[in-house]
Design a protein around this nucleic acid. Structure first.
Lengths: 236, 236
DNA sequence: AAGTGGTCTAGACCACGCT
DNA sequence: GCGTGGTCTAGACCACTTC
């Protein structure tokens, strides 16, 4: 509620979503908007930059800001969005089973694989995600104990992100992610319903807090028919 | 060469890439940089915003701008980067074969699948990408003839993007992308070396020009062992 | 309290599209 | 030529981290 440019962004974004401002039309000019919102043009430009980055508008020099078709807001599966949020949004019956929850020291092997320091203590968590009655995702997490103390099996059963952001008040900020297709491992075959499937889609992410400290390494292993990744990219 | 803030961005980005500015250290303060570059603080902030968006730095209020470890940031395969650029960057021996190049009218069937208007004329292009001696990617393109006139088989053999941006002077702006894993079709089996593979990774993209007109629909079908997608995402 | 980044302003000039 | 967005400035005040 504090920032003027965010209020303006939200105001215009809402109008676009509801269709009050139609796709294909031009927004009022920056000068008009600055008068309309009783603010400076730079502040309007900040709000428009946000609308641009979120895919609401396209700006054309000399012409104006075109309102784009509201894109289907489909979320990337796994990564910066928690599984719980995602399942709810998609309207699926989802369950989580915690198979492994252990206090573990980072050894040579783990060190090479993930981004943590040697001998640091991490939580090792293996969870199976059941969607509409089938075990389709295997999540393997390594979470820094220093940054996220007091984790428990019960919390993992619910949402780890809710605990971290809600209880601990930490802000998750960015992630590096890699998507590959691999042969199922023994572990995959053990936990997932892979009847007839010859591959799993593996999403490896390193997740960072706002102060750039790496707090989580995740390997999310999906049955291929249940995997979908949606992206909106601007050319750089 | 024109914009001050872009020059500053490139200058600092280069220093980070070469390691001259080390990951984990802080950049000079915005005030210092504005003196160093003989410019205003807002201009420095624009350059830093770019560095932030590209994953070079993390900004922390009251503290400074932390330099991130950029090494793992790679290029997304297919999409807004052309295959030619990509193959060169990765250092692969890559070849392209144009199997189909046709003038086609958008019928009911095509209309449902892609984003173009009924009865519009499009180029239908099917190309096989050979990387290091194997046929591993099948690209199916539909390109608007109205927006991209004068396309030819020869151009497709080289780089379509170079033609569009170079010859025609059009600016490619953004894309909606979807990644799924599917069963190979007859067409996949015909053109790709799929011996022993049971799936293909399908990347569907709708690509838009700067004025928000959709000019290309692409289906890029990858042999799973040759697929890799790397992403850097910030939480919204 | 000092130093950092975050927001906001009012104004200037430039580059581009349109007619 | 006029209206549009793009860049840049110099300065103000606020919010946060650190000492």
């Amino acid at each position: 509620m504090n920032n003027k440019f965010i209020r303006i962004y939200e105001d215009i974004a809402a109008d676009i979503r509801t269709g009050e401002i139609e796709a294909g039309t031009l927004l009022p000019s920056e000068l008009d908007l600055s008068e309309q919102y009783q603010t400076s043009r730079e502040t309007i430009r900040k709000a428009l930059k946000m609308l641009y980055e979120e895919g609401y508008i396209q700006k054309i020099q000399g012409k104006g800001s075109i309102v784009l078709d509201i894109r289907k807001i489909d979320f990337p599966i796994s990564g910066l969005v928690s599984f719980k949020e995602l399942a709810q949004k998609m309207g699926h019956r989802a369950k989580t089973y915690v198979n492994v929850f252990e206090d573990r020291e980072v050894d040579q092997n783990l060190f090479k694989q993930i981004g943590f320091a040697l001998n640091e203590n991490v939580w090792e968590i293996v969870r199976v995600r059941n969607v509409d009655g089938e075990h389709v995702i295997l999540d393997k997490d390594y979470i820094s104990q220093k940054l996220v103390p007091g984790l428990s099996k019960e919390i993992c059963n619910n949402s780890i992100y809710e605990y971290i952001e809600g209880e601990l008040g930490l802000a998750i900020s960015f992630a590096k992610k890699e998507i590959l297709v691999e042969e199922p491992t023994e572990e995959d075959r053990k936990w997932l319903d892979l009847d007839g499937f010859h591959n799993v889609v593996v999403v490896r992410s390193q997740v960072y807090l706002e102060d750039a400290s790496p707090f989580q390494y995740t390997e999310s292993r999906h049955r291929p028919d249940k995997f979908k990744f949606v992206d909106f990219a601007r050319r750089r």
